[in-house]
């Protein structure tokens, strides 16, 4: 079983997200470590992209801040951040980024570096099932999971996506881009049920979750809940105090999620 899939084994998982280099190198390290201390099961680190089409205003703004701080933001700087994080925590990590970033570094070199640093998975919103072939064999060779997205409009695509998945399956809560929401698609249970029919790979729901109640509700349906924009907002709002706030927030959210019985 992949290291990421193991995260979901004994309890429902809480998965926060923050953008790398927002606000800077050390801030990123401190924030990820704080999320780990707060009890996060897996942290998604977003690699900023100039044109994040799948992301809403909050994460877009984080990417802009991160790239303003360092317009070139070489991938090696981000790998260095992870190396720094690794000195302080062994928490499972995944990257969320757009395919061009991986493509420019080179699929082979990128995934190799990921394994060396204990990045166990990649979420790439602009790499749908049809295009995963160019990266999948290379990622598999280096034991890096390609975490696919399934959405409320995936329809007949659900089965093939689920069957090819490793790590976990990112279930998109509703149409549109990332960002806090008050409502989710109402057929998420059916969606998760369809996935579970064809695979044991765990599922986690993301896009829009920000309150503990929502996280609890989503963790009832799926195996975990992913929270992005809410964490990014904390980073933006609290600056140097962000680690403390993130740790508290994670504690709350984790408690809400873990309360649900595992399947």
């Amino acid at each position: 079983m992949s290291k990421i899939a193991e995260v979901f084994k004994n309890h429902k998982a809480f998965i926060p997200f923050i953008a790398a280099n927002d606000p800077d190198f050390q801030g990123t390290v401190n924030n990820v470590v704080a999320l780990a201390k707060g009890g996060a099961d897996l942290v998604e680190i977003g690699i900023p992209f100039s044109d994040p089409v799948a992301d809403g205003p909050v994460i877009q703004a984080a990417d802009i801040r991160a790239l303003k701080a360092d317009p070139d933001l070489p991938m090696d700087t981000i790998f260095d951040m992870v190396a720094e994080i690794r000195k302080q925590t062994a928490i499972p990590l995944a990257f969320l980024t757009y395919l061009n970033i991986v493509f420019q570094y080179g699929y082979e070199a990128f995934t190799k570096r990921c394994t060396e640093l204990g990045i166990d998975g990649l979420v790439i919103p602009d790499m749908p099932y049809e295009e995963r072939g160019e990266l999948a064999p290379i990622a598999a060779k280096h034991d890096v999971d390609l975490i696919p997205l399934v959405t409320p409009v995936s329809g007949d695509r659900i089965e093939k996506i689920a069957k090819a998945a490793t790590g976990f399956i990112y279930v998109v809560s509703s149409l549109g881009v990332t960002g806090e929401r008050s409502e989710f698609a109402n057929d998420l249970s059916d969606l998760v049920a369809r996935i579970r029919k064809v695979t044991d790979v765990p599922t986690a729901i993301g896009f829009g979750i920000h309150t503990a109640e929502q996280a609890a509700e989503m963790a009832q349906i799926a195996d975990g809940a992913i929270v992005g924009s809410a964490c990014v907002n904390i980073v933006a709002e609290y600056g140097e105090q962000a680690p403390t706030k993130l740790q508290d927030y994670t504690k709350q959210m984790k408690a809400a999620v873990v309360g649900n019985p595992v399947r």
Partner: peptide
């Protein structure tokens, strides 16, 4: 190719 978010693939 079609390097586009899953939400748009069916469409």
């Amino acid at each position: 190719g079609q390097y586009i978010p899953e939400t748009l693939m069916n469409e």
